[in-house]
Simulated scan of single mutants.
Amino acid sequence: MVFLPFVVLAFLVRGSLCDIPGKPGKKVINGLEHSPLTEVSAVVGGRAVLPCDVKPPTPGDAPILVLFYNGATGTPIYSIDARTGPLTRSVHWSDLESRAHFDVTSEPQGLVIDDVMAIDDGDYRCRVDFRSSPTRNLRVKLLVIVPPERVSISNSGGLEVSGVIGPYPVGRTLTLTCEVQGGKPRPQVSWWHEGSLLDDSIETASGDVTRNVLKLPNLTRQHLYRVLTCQTSNSNMSLPLAATVTLDMSCESEWSLDFRCCFDVFGEY
């Protein structure tokens, strides 16, 4: 990749940043007020395409300079100097190094960012200068999705549990806390049993931790071997995380021995 000297690039930018060709007296402050906004979502580690239409509005015209800014009037992060030839054979400069390239053959056209990072989240502006047509500005908001890092289940004593837990006596109130680390936007946390939703309310959320507390009052023998699943997700673009526990029940209730439970479980006592 050939790099365009930043001094030359800065001169080109300053020469036309504030005046819009074909619109005398029109000033650009913090980007064009009425430039269209496109929202793009991408998952960390994935690929994002920031659309930028470089097709000239009139026949015979051609783009001579393409600039991508991080922010409305921020520092250029990508440029194409097409004054001496078509975009496909022009000088490309990238502040994102090999993570970015401009694709003029796909639909939509735009800046392709690979291995998306959390710091890539934000507002961008694409500016296209043509030989004779007015400058075109397009705004893009990149929403970077950071999937949750970890999901865990803890008991009422605050100890992390997994697999088969218990045994719990009949009549007991079971309290389990599902805790999810990370995630942007903040993830949804829900409890499930065999495809049936038990609880999808978030009781506490602080920092990068989101919690959902499940309470099952008055356990019965029907809870024996019941599988409880805590599931979390913050986007349909990534797979949800889940943690599962299986309840074990004892025949002894909190007050006496439950003979019916023993017969149901073991066949005979």
Rank of each mutant, 00 (worst) to 15 (best):
I145K: 01
G166A: 03
G207H: 04
L176M: 09
D95I: 01
M117F: 13
R172H: 12
S256K: 15
Q231P: 02
H223R: 04
C18H: 14
Q231Y: 00
S35M: 08
V265E: 12
L239Q: 12
R99E: 04
V265F: 15
A82D: 06
S250C: 11
S94A: 12
S79N: 12
V245Y: 02
C126K: 07
C52K: 01
L138Q: 09
T58V: 10
P76A: 06
R99Y: 03
D114Q: 13
D199N: 07
A62G: 03
T232P: 06
N155M: 08
Q231S: 14
L50H: 01
S79I: 08
F68H: 02
I119Q: 08
T84S: 11
S152H: 02
L138G: 08
A72T: 09
T38V: 14
L239A: 13
F263N: 02
S250N: 08
R14P: 00
L111A: 04
E254D: 12
E97V: 08
T105F: 10
V128A: 00
L142G: 01
V49R: 11
I145G: 00
G46V: 14
I64K: 03
F266E: 03
G157P: 03
E268V: 12
S253P: 01
W191A: 02
G157C: 09
V54Y: 03
N236A: 15
V28K: 10
D115K: 08
C178K: 04
N155S: 14
P57T: 04
C230A: 14
R221D: 10
D199T: 01
F266M: 02
E254G: 07
L159R: 10
E107S: 15
F68E: 00
R150E: 11
T73F: 11
P240E: 04
H223E: 14
D53A: 05
R136G: 01
V245P: 00
S132G: 09
L241Q: 04
F263P: 00
K215V: 15
D199G: 00
S250E: 13
G85D: 10
S162Q: 08
P147Q: 12
A82E: 06
A242C: 11
D121R: 08
L12E: 13
L219P: 03
A72Y: 07
F259C: 01
T210M: 04
G46S: 15
S196F: 05
A243Q: 08
L142I: 10
R89Q: 13
S152I: 10
T175C: 04
R139H: 14
S79R: 05
I80R: 00
S196H: 07
R131E: 07
F68N: 00
V91W: 02
E149S: 13
T105K: 10
S256H: 15
K27R: 12
Q231G: 05
S154C: 07
V2I: 08
V104Y: 05
Q231T: 15
Y69F: 15
E107T: 15
V8D: 13
Q231L: 12
S235I: 12
K26G: 03
Y168C: 11
R89W: 03
Q188T: 10
Q188E: 10
Y124G: 01
G71E: 04
P148S: 02
V44F: 05
S156M: 11
T58F: 04
M117C: 14
G171Y: 09
D199S: 08
H34D: 09
I202H: 01
K55T: 12
E39Q: 05
V44S: 03
V43I: 14
L96P: 00
K26H: 15
D258P: 00
S90L: 11
S156W: 05
N212G: 13
S154K: 09
P185G: 05
